[in-house]
Design a protein around this nucleic acid. Structure first.
Length: 300
DNA sequence: TGCCAGGGTCTTT
DNA sequence: AAAGACCATGGC
């Protein structure tokens, strides 16, 4: 690139700490969708159907600086990137009410202090969220990241920059032509391979889309519709609602991470039951998704 | 080293 | 409706 790289500013809300979000993104070495380098995040995204590379940092901690590494964006493309980053970091949400309840909550007061300014970092891409959700079922998170890496490196495209590869998540169209046997070579179970391919085919057919679910009445409707799909149970439906659809009442009650975080914070000898968790969650009305995200962060 | 992992489906009582 | 078997690989 001979031209000067262009940087735009993205406004951030009051309850925001760039370093805290960076720490979350840096917590997994094996993450394939972005790199955390020198207090910045570099990732590829698709803008106007074209892969570009962006770098996010916050030199003055006031707003996010977004640098276009490989591409001089048009005005419209800049707006698209701002919209993407805003959604990714959930920048439009006012966390004041959540923090008001979290401050005095038996479980949330510690993570509130520890992770102040952390946003529920989302998975804007619906197919990515679906695959990640299915992939992560019942296996340890480290292995899930390994499977995601294999999946993305096998079926995705990438931009190479300074010797590193920056990946875009594979499109469902690509997976629609893949066989169960091929997916199983990545060491996914046969069931998961089937689920992922089914979901890809449904998306290609137009039966399954983010827009469809964003337009739905409430969490209950989303949950009912999603769990009708083979491979998606209550946990995955709520995970998707929380990380992709941004439904704030989404709550994967039976989540092992949530259970273990509560057990740890309350110094319990045994895992809390579903009833105990629902009891605790009564104080999290309308903020179950953020409560879950902050509790996860306690352990990982 | 054996238990368990950011569950879900299918079968059996 | 509720409980149990099974998936199946790898982290720790």
């Amino acid at each position: 690139m001979s031209h000067k790289q262009q940087t735009i500013l993205i406004a951030t809300p009051t309850e925001f700490c760039f370093a805290e979000n960076l720490a979350y993104l840096a917590r997994e070495q094996n993450e394939v969708m972005y790199e955390v380098i020198d207090q910045s995040i570099i990732r590829a995204i698709k803008v106007n159907h074209q892969p570009i590379l962006i770098q996010l940092d916050a030199p003055n901690q006031q707003e996010i600086h977004c640098t276009f590494i490989t591409h001089q964006p048009s005005e419209i493309e800049q707006q698209e990137v701002i919209a993407y980053v805003t959604e990714w970091f959930d920048l439009e949400r006012d966390l004041q009410p959540f923090y008001t309840l979290a401050q005095h909550d038996a479980l949330l007061s510690i993570p509130y202090t520890k992770f102040y300014g952390l946003r529920n970092i989302g998975i804007p891409d619906f197919f990515e969220a679906l695959v990640w959700g299915i992939l992560g079922q019942q296996i340890n998170l480290r292995f899930a990241y390994t499977l995601k890496r294999r999946f993305v490196e096998m079926y995705g495209e990438c931009i190479v920059y300074e010797g590193k590869k920056y990946w875009l998540f594979p499109e469902p169209e690509i997976l629609a032509n893949v066989t169960v046997e091929e997916l199983m070579l990545l060491k996914m179970t046969q069931k998961k391979s089937e689920y992922i391919l089914d979901v890809a085919q449904k998306m290609v057919a137009g039966d399954l889309s983010k827009e469809k679910y964003l337009a739905m009445e409430d969490l209950q409707a989303v949950e009912k519709s999603l769990t009708a799909i083979r491979g998606i149970g209550p946990w995955t439906a709520n995970y998707l609602a929380m990380r992709c659809l941004r439904i704030q009442t989404a709550f994967p009650v039976a989540d092992v991470g949530l259970i273990n975080a509560i057990k740890f914070l309350k110094e319990m000898d045994q895992k809390p039951t579903k009833e105990e968790i629902l009891e605790l969650a009564q104080n999290w009305e309308n903020w179950q998704a953020y409560a879950t995200f902050y509790l996860w962060r306690v352990l990982y």
